[in-house]
């Protein structure tokens, strides 16, 4: 508790110096101790980042080493062992077709992270490029903004469902649909940041000293958008994991043969009174992963953007 109250105070005293450095049109901030030490100090102060990060590490570990964690095939159907309750061999029991729930939860982590990572990465790349263009070049700005307006007129999951309806159930299509849905938000974020930066002194002086537009945008504008983007990426990651599960649950996501937490929950609905474990374990895995990502995102936001720090 104590160190939390000290933190903002020390930040406020650092404020004038921070601004002075910023005015010098410099991207590096407050260099007193090595960067990695500073980052670690901040992380330690942010319990949210620690807890969230720990949860995500476990999930990442499960996803990478899925083959080593369990030797059971997550897709092996064995009607002899249908709906067995959790035991020493099947840690989380088996489902309606005798498949190992533990193996499916572990391999489901792989799918969730794959989709979460690829979606947030692709969204970030495309969203940033389009946002930079919209924010920096006034001529195309209104066209891009009207298109994002129209895209944001669809509730996200509905648009994703419509895209899935057309393209059919596959993992690549899920990533495609979720990326399309998330891009407008990143575009708007980057655009608003760029418009703010465009008027700032250091961009003006860069232009005055004869930098090309590409150099101004890439060298002076882009680095200043990084930290809000990192925060945004963690939230898009969380939303993509959630959206994939929702789509799969509705039957418009990953194909049924792929172990996905959403597919597992859809299967469990019919048998929850006989085999509740088929529901509990994927539900817990999904909720924990999303919780971890949200904690990480909140913590990173507080850490990277002190102005938004919650009191």
């Amino acid at each position: 508790m104590d160190d939390k109250q000290v933190a903002p105070a020390s930040h406020e005293t650092a404020e004038p110096g921070y601004q002075a450095r910023n005015r010098r049109s410099d991207v590096t901030l407050m260099t007193t101790s090595p960067r990695i030490v500073r980052i670690w100090r901040q992380v330690r102060r942010q319990k949210q980042v620690l807890i969230g990060g720990a949860i995500i590490l476990v999930v990442v570990f499960a996803a990478i080493f899925a083959n080593l964690i369990t030797t059971n095939d997550p897709t092996l159907i064995d009607p002899r062992f249908r709906m067995r309750s959790p035991n020493a061999y099947y840690f989380f029991g088996t489902d309606s077709q005798g498949r190992d729930v533990f193996a499916r939860v572990v391999f489901g982590a792989r799918l969730s992270l794959e989709i979460g990572f690829l979606t947030s990465f692709l969204t970030l790349v495309f969203g940033t490029v389009i946002g930079l263009i919209a924010g920096y070049y006034k001529r195309v700005d209104s066209v891009i903004m009207r298109i994002t307006d129209a895209m944001m007129a669809f509730p996200g999951i509905i648009l994703a469902i419509a895209i899935m309806a057309v393209r059919g159930a596959s993992v690549a299509n899920v990533i495609f649909a979720l990326t399309i849905v998330a891009i407008p938000r990143v575009v708007r974020l980057v655009r608003s940041l760029v418009i703010g930066l465009r008027e700032s002194l250091f961009v003006e002086s860069a232009i005055a000293s004869g930098c090309t537009s590409v150099r101004v945008v890439g060298w002076h504008v882009l680095p200043n958008t990084i930290s809000p983007l990192i925060v945004q990426m963690s939230f898009i990651f969380a939303e993509a994991v959630l959206a994939e599960a929702t789509l799969s649950f509705l039957g418009a996501g990953a194909p049924p043969e792929i172990p996905s937490w959403g597919n597992m929950l859809a299967d469990s609905q019919r048998i929850m009174n006989i085999a509740p474990w088929t529901m509990f374990f994927p539900a817990a895995a999904l909720a924990l992963t999303v919780l971890g990502l949200n904690l990480l995102g909140d913590g990173l936001r507080d850490m990277l953007d002190p102005r938004l720090r919650r009191r």
């Binding site: 929950l265 929850m272 999904l286 909720a287």
Partner: peptide, 22 residues
Amino acid sequence: AMAGVAVPTFVTGLLLIYIFAV
């Protein structure tokens, strides 16, 4: 509230069905 935001709608739904209906 943090937990509530992390638990997806359909998981809440399934849990509620399990507890209050089943």
